[in-house]
Write a protein that binds this DNA or RNA. Structure first.
Lengths: 142, 142
DNA sequence: GGAGGTAGGTTTGATTTCCCAACCCACTGA
DNA sequence: TCAGTGGGTTGGGAAATCAAACCTACCTCC
């Protein structure tokens, strides 16, 4: 049997390897240079170089030159890269709730003044997109 | 330098390996048995067995017996497992928008009657939790 | 009672990754 | 000239992955 065709699997093809999402986390934090990303994630340099190359060719990051002589680049988020922020936000929330022990390493404050508790809602009605509120409108082939 | 302490990294320790999130996707779809998960994800059986074992010991899945003689189990979501649904939802949305080409393999209908467009919002004010609307309330050590 | 099928893995051996350390190159600054 | 920085690449050994075969325990059919 062929595995299911699925956007989750497609997404994981691009960002599902080890270190990819952590490298993106650093870019979201503003650490856009190779050595910073290597240090803050703990990834080995060769694997990190491969991951960054893949993320660039997938259109998630782009290399932006910040110096000639010597030629130096920073990794910046593309639109597709910025669109991954909700994924990281929900992954962080899950880690906060179910994995991290002790005080949370990072808490976000939302512009409304409260500590962020992220929720996924339907863009149209604003109601929570809970497991029970969803039905399949198109059925994958079984 | 020590890598950053971070709930994203902690979360990925649990569900970040290859096949883990796809196995969970199948359980969310109601395919709770070993052979179903293997077939629909495409994971090799030995790796899948290791992943399921890890997810069970991490408290994301639990084995529920559905037959004695022969002893057979299904993998069911725990509360922590169900809490991963928003992560998969946003990952699917990103894949839909930026990776999958052609018609989407799966569209959800929300209980309000519209095709789901998931958004991440602040639970208190209901406004979108955009990148710009967030500031760090606690700063990780640099 | 044997043959075949189902379910849930485990074992085996070959192939890929991953990790770490060392190295390289182009520059800068002292 | 010599150390340091930034951004990688290279090499070798350890670990993970893959596909296929195998195993156990049952059930069903003939």
């Amino acid at each position: 049997m062929a595995p299911r065709s699925c956007s989750i699997a497609n997404a994981l093809e691009v960002v599902g390897e080890r270190w990819s999402l952590l490298a993106l986390r650093e870019v979201f934090f503003g650490n856009t240079r190779f050595d910073q990303i290597a240090a803050y994630t703990g990834a080995s340099r060769d694997v990190l170089a491969a991951r960054l190359k893949k993320l660039v060719s997938a259109g998630v990051l782009e290399k932006v030159q910040y110096s000639s002589q010597p030629v130096r680049h920073e990794y910046h988020l593309t639109e597709a890269g910025r669109a991954l922020h909700p994924v990281l936000l929900m992954l962080k929330e899950w880690g906060d709730q179910y994995v991290t022990e002790g005080p949370l390493p990072l808490v976000y404050e939302h512009s409304c003044g409260r500590a962020l508790e992220p929720r996924v809602v339907c863009a149209y009605c604003g109601e929570e997109a809970s497991l029970e509120s969803l039905t399949r409108a198109s059925q994958p082939v079984h």
